[in-house]
Nucleic acid binder design. Structure first.
Lengths: 219, 219, 219, 219
DNA sequence: CATGAATGAGCCTTCATTCAT
DNA sequence: CATGAATGAAGGCTCATTCAT
């Protein structure tokens, strides 16, 4: 109940949330410290005080976002590792899609991470190790199970890329999708249908690959 | 008049190319007119003279990039429409990947378009209609052939998204891929292998879907 | 009928007229050579070619305007110097007002001269000698006749200022008049009424001064 | 806080005064923010900080000038409304002239307002209502008293224009007067003489009008 | 004679950051 | 700890003018 400490913590948090929204909307360069401070109800010098400079604030926002996202949507949807690999893949895809496209607040996490892909900053290294790698490893282990012991690592990697790419497409290409596929919705029902399709598409492909059927594979 | 025009076209073109590189690298806001003019060996006022303002230059760059990309890599790889759908899909994917990831100059086309996805400008509308839609329609027609007359449009759309998503992943997530999958290369051989995998993965999935195997997808 | 000469003279004249309008509207600094050339249908370099630079064009416009105004409205309305001084003053005021406020084309002469008062350029010297001084001398001679031989030059000068000031007010303060006296019109009828009032007001004052009445004069 | 505020008010005020001089000398467009800041001893960004932009500074200068002018020279010279109308008119004219032509610092008030007449900005509306209208109403009431109850409002308005026009002439036409009437001075004594003449001239005219002498005005 | 592409100076504005209080 | 006035660099844009053709 130390007023100063509490109010200071408040300011820090408000700054973090305001910055998240504005960085997500306008990017690092497009965002202005002034607007962030105004939206946070803080003084213009607050950013320099709490985060040293604009970049320090940005780093803090990225970490905050990654932590929050993983807390809300644990990797793999928290599915029991003893479940069949098929179920684990379905859970993984569903959770991944929700984490990306959940329209509930705060909605700016994913947008920030998308930006990092296109115009990486120093924050991407940290993000890759603490946020992305665990998810990637989880997916690889699922796919290794599905593809069987005979599958070489290259094939696993390529399949992982195929699964993740199908999901991220709906995050990264939203503006274009809105124009070319206006019938594509992203409410809860549509998200479930989408997760179903991606899981289906991927599981069928993987099953076929494992079976080693010649169909279409080697022309 | 010819000579003047040619020399003027030179300045215009140099401006266009310099702007393409710098817009791709730093984005619209991050790019500075000064740097563009310096790299083009032109006066600071040249942008205003030839393109009215920074935004006019940006629009011209986007159109130039789209036109160039389609000229170098025609939609669907120029595959004969009478070829089997399977072959047409392979050609489509291969050409699409090359268009996205070709490391030869000018390499900035795709990057610009990626940026438009994350932070769309007014140029995206034009791009969607003249550049993206024809490709999307081509892909849909191939997939409709592959899925057979019984497939409903939603399924076709979702499969198109799956195919395109697998390709774009390697464009949009390059910085993250470099960190998580350092073994993934993008030279010509790797690109061919990648195209092979994506086509394989997709064709197997589609064949399985068409065959109507049990939803669980384990044949 | 030498085409080049004619077309060149045409260009010069069109430039002069376009410049007059635009200088009157935006002032010397506010006017742009580009807009002037566009309105005149001339090349961007035409001003430098025909008038050396922007200032040369401005000087030429001022001279053109003064000459045109005096040609259309001769000093004193061309009244016979043998007419009674009263009639000559009425004619002078009426012509002066028309010259200032005539809404017919080209309407920009007066506006340019007003500007010269507020922000004089080198053109004002020329204008004072060739345009304003003859009018001032004419007015002084009329007033000297009206005030009689006993009037000292100071009194004549002050009365001239009173007459001219009453007229110019409607030129220089038009924007303020429109706001404070919206009922004040400037069509032909209103101009005649205005000229009547100013002449009346001035003649009554002068007559009273000449009569040397004590009324209100020396408190 | 007081000290800070005082020092800040200092910068603000210095900016206001420097801007007043420079706007008066070169007009809104001709004035440069750089020169204003230099003369005020302030940073180039100070204008943006205190007044948002150049136009905001201009508006503030106009209001400052109008307020200052009315504070130093109250409308009508603060003459007792119970004084005879004749005395009130003399006081009005004298104060009006001083307000216009006082050569003491700050001398730029009137010049700015003159400019607004020739090239009005959005500031003129505000100026008309808060600065000019009260003076106009005061003058009308004096003239209505002088002209008597039989005078119609048109006549009152025209007479007001005659009085004001005689005063403003010496403000608006100063550069031309200097050339044509070099003997006209504007020191205190000359100003008093000028005010005397204008009041005299006007009172005689009005008295004659009220007396309804023949239209020819020769008594 | 006329063109129009090219020039370079300069203007207003914005921004992240600092520092005295 | 917190404030907000002040800073200085830099950015986009406009303009009059020039010069090769």
């Amino acid at each position: 109940m130390h007023l100063t400490q509490e109010s200071s913590a408040d300011t820090r948090t408000r700054l973090l949330e305001a910055a998240g929204e504005i960085f997500a909307e306008h990017g690092f360069r497009g965002a202005t410290v002034r607007e962030i401070c105004e939206r946070a109800g803080a003084n213009i010098a607050a950013v320099n005080y709490h985060f040293r400079d604009k970049e320090g604030l940005y780093r803090a926002v990225i970490e905050f976002a990654a932590g929050y996202a993983l807390a809300k949507y644990p990797i793999g949807g928290g599915a029991d590792p003893k479940l069949p690999a098929e179920d684990r893949l379905r859970a993984f895809i569903r959770t991944y899609l929700y984490r990306l496209l959940d329209e509930g607040r705060p909605a700016w996490h994913g947008k920030l991470i998308s930006r990092e892909m296109v115009e990486p900053t120093a924050a991407l290294d940290h993000l890759a190790e603490t946020f992305a790698r665990p998810q990637y490893e989880r997916l690889r282990s699922i796919l290794a199970d599905l593809l069987g012991p005979a599958a070489d690592p290259d094939r696993v990697r390529l399949c992982a890329a195929s699964v993740v790419g199908q999901c991220l497409f709906h995050k990264h290409c939203r503006p274009m999708i809105r124009r070319l596929m206006p019938e594509q919705a992203y409410d809860t029902a549509a998200l479930d249908a989408l997760a179903g399709h991606i899981a289906d598409f991927s599981l069928r492909a993987i099953a076929s690959i494992r079976a080693g059927a010649a169909k279409g594979a080697t022309p």
